[in-house]
């Protein structure tokens, strides 16, 4: 008989990266469907190209650097899909290719792969695309149902849309973020499958609501316009780049909400979600350090 000797803990969880990422893909499905319904075939093509380039890019990178090819864990597929959903449906297909490769090679691969990247790959790629080709990411297509050919997003033109339109997603915007109802369905799926906890999405959204309200926006419309809900559910909760403790996650969410409000009010770009979450990604090690939980049985260290 062969004995398997390992140090504690001995409890195994059947949870695998693949299963968790599968849950995320499942939760993203309603948003993807809503995006295709609202914007038509170009949205589907963009998301497909983005997923393919992220997965192929990760496989090539791992092969070239002599690592085991682990694209089966679906993490690259999630990155690609989230990136695709962050693009304007009018964006050219090569933008999704560049973004997908940037995400998996420069942001993830170069820093050691899944678990060692200090930024959310999809968000970092979006920021890179936004800085490089701002016109492709900020030229919006109107929904198929609307009469207009293209228009400003609710962030640039706050009074042009009703709350109902904002909630159902009958507005110009990025593919995945516009339909808030679908985002909420995804949130419920992630909660029920215990893929994420409520702390980051709720604290981030409430914090955006409060700080945008304090800065003179209509708080409900501020949360329903732009990518706040989508980002708070799917991007801020990336395991690798958010704090580990509950307290840390609340700090992270509130901080991101504050930054979103400040960037919207004073920043160069109408939307601040991307940069706000990237900044909190960078602050995550610091938050983790200050919210470390006391290990059972140990006294808190006396201040020297």
């Amino acid at each position: 008989m062969k004995l398997h000797l390992t140090p504690a803990p001995h409890v195994h969880s059947p949870q695998t990266t693949r299963a968790l990422m599968g849950n995320v893909l499942l939760a993203l499905a309603p948003c993807a469907v809503a995006g295709v319904v609202i914007f038509g075939a170009p949205a589907l093509v963009l998301m497909a190209v983005s997923v393919l380039s992220a997965v192929a890019g990760e496989a090539c990178w791992q092969r070239l650097t002599g690592q085991k090819v682990r694209v089966n864990d679906l993490s690259a597929a999630v990155t690609g899909l989230i990136l695709g959903m962050n693009l304007s449906p009018r964006a050219p297909w090569w933008l999704a290719v560049v973004g997908g490769l940037f995400a998996v090679v420069l942001v993830k691969g170069l820093f050691g792969g899944l678990g060692d990247n200090f930024l959310n790959p999809a968000l970092a790629a979006r920021a890179f695309l936004l800085v490089s080709w701002p016109r492709y990411l900020t030229t919006w297509a109107a929904p198929l149902a609307a009469d207009a050919v293209s228009g400003a997003t609710p962030l640039a033109n706050p009074s042009g849309y009703t709350l109902g339109q904002l909630f159902l997603g009958n507005i110009p915007g990025s593919i995945g973020e516009v339909c808030k109802a679908a985002v909420l369905v995804g949130f419920v799926i992630l909660l029920c499958t215990k893929t994420i906890t409520w702390h980051i999405p709720v604290s981030l959204t409430l914090s955006t609501l409060v700080f945008c309200g304090l800065l003179g926006y209509n708080p409900i419309a501020a949360v329903l316009s732009g990518g706040v809900l989508f980002a708070s559910v799917f991007m801020a909760t990336d395991y690798v780049t958010c704090p580990m403790s509950t307290k840390g996650q609340l700090v992270y969410g509130v901080g991101a909400g504050l930054l979103i409000a400040l960037i919207r009010k004073f920043g160069l770009y109408p939307e601040g979600v991307t940069f706000a979450i990237l900044l909190m990604n960078v602050a995550t090690p610091l938050i983790d350090r200050y919210t470390k939980r006391r290990v059972y049985g140990y006294e808190k260290e006396a201040k020297a």
Binding site: V98, L106, L110, F128, V131, S132, W133
Partner: peptide, 20 residues
């Protein structure tokens, strides 16, 4: 070309990769 490579942030990216 990729316009952002001409920005300082792009400089850091290129320099970092070349260093590696």
């Amino acid at each position: 070309g990729i316009p952002s490579i001409a920005l300082p942030a792009g400089g850091f990216l290129v320099l970092g990769v070349l260093m590696g």
